[in-house]
Design a binder for these strands. Sequence first.
DNA 1: CAGTGGTCTAGACCACCTC
DNA 2: AGGTGGTCTAGACCACTGT
Lengths: 251, 251
Amino acid sequence: MPESDRVSAMSSNKYNQIYREISTDIQEGRYEKDDVLPSEHRLVATFDVSRETVRKALNLLQENGFIQKMKGKGSVVIYDSSMDFTVSHLTSFKEIQQLKTKQYTTLAVELEQYPAEQFPHVMQALELSPEDRVWQLIRQRKHEGQTHIVDMDYFLVEMLPGLNTKIAEDSIYEYIEKKLGLTIAYSHKEITFDAMTDEEADLFDHSVPPYVATVRSVVHLNDASPFQYNVSKHLASEFKFVDFSRRFHGE
Amino acid sequence: MPESDRVSAMSSNKYNQIYREISTDIQEGRYEKDDVLPSEHRLVATFDVSRETVRKALNLLQENGFIQKMKGKGSVVIYDSSMDFTVSHLTSFKEIQQLKTKQYTTLAVELEQYPAEQFPHVMQALELSPEDRVWQLIRQRKHEGQTHIVDMDYFLVEMLPGLNTKIAEDSIYEYIEKKLGLTIAYSHKEITFDAMTDEEADLFDHSVPPYVATVRSVVHLNDASPFQYNVSKHLASEFKFVDFSRRFHGE
DNA sequence: CAGTGGTCTAGACCACCTC
DNA sequence: AGGTGGTCTAGACCACTGT
């Protein structure tokens, strides 16, 4: 194999390439809000692919909030690059939200192994036996010296044997996907607002208001196995969650 | 047209029918978590459709959190009917969340027309002119005598000329979709956490904690026009937002 | 009417998993 | 090797939108 085989995680099928090309055009302003994309027929000619392939790309654009397709009219751009997509770190599952504006420094406060039975919620969420060993990782996310987020993460030790505080302070997801070759597929999240406990008040330097937005999530891999249990406590006054949803028309 | 034309909003294309049939089977326990669905080949035979049609149905099931497809293996059910999908009213865009457990009574506190310039945020979100007239609708949602949610809604008057408090206390969405024949397509939501204002404290009967979860959303129709601006204030201690997200693999 | 997107088909080739 | 899902094609017919 003489050529570069370093395509990495870049999906290289045709409809994904078309999706990336058009979404970049939208994000960089070559298409503006309310513009109409070229028709499917025209895109078929432009990209020299079949219509179904073009349609897959357009459906991706629609699902991700870039366009709205309209029968008889065309595909209209609905993404406004001037919109506010600032959002708390943890909601990084949605592409748009990768454009995070705040710079955080991450400090690993604790990284220890425990038997799973110490954390019944984790045991249940990750489908563990009481004697399985889990990492408990606690991290502070600071912005301008102020702790905005406290993350508590739980992983099965045997899946992440080499975890250390350096990795924890860089990017765990990069380690998981690039180094271990695992693929993250989906997650369930729950957001609630809670009064701070005393320990939390310490970690947040006794900020006001004494409330946190709690995001609990279970992250699953490709093979549907639950992989990570995360409890992310956000200083309530700094928390913002942004969501784009499509109406479900199947009932 | 001799036959019943009363198909209403029930999408009657093939892949939607297959989607509904299988999702019902999952929700009613005929498939359980970790079961593997029949293969695409088998479903093609069962439903007597082409493979792409079966695949559209399976993709819908995957997008909506019912299954996870795995290359070489099959489609595994990941939906657990025993899971907690209780959620605050406003997040009703996701199908799963229709199974709301709490019973709310709705009281329309105010329904008045104003010039749009009174509400700059609304004017901007709904792309109105200052002199456009908008409805302001304020509703309390009560559970066991306690106000849990205060909704403030804004609509362009000329789009909803017949709005009245009876409709407001029943279902506005039914009125919009069934009576007016409009189709809701998508929405942007923002969730933040705020201290109550004095007016809000009144509407919430001076509950503790004096904090609310604020969900601001702009709802768009089929033709991409912004239709509704909604600010939903939830008593912080009663608020819970549930999200299912798929990892985006296109970058 | 012509142009648009929505649905559906029958077949092909590939990559992945299990035996 | 045989079964699974992933991608892609070329073509068809339909429903909706505009002129």
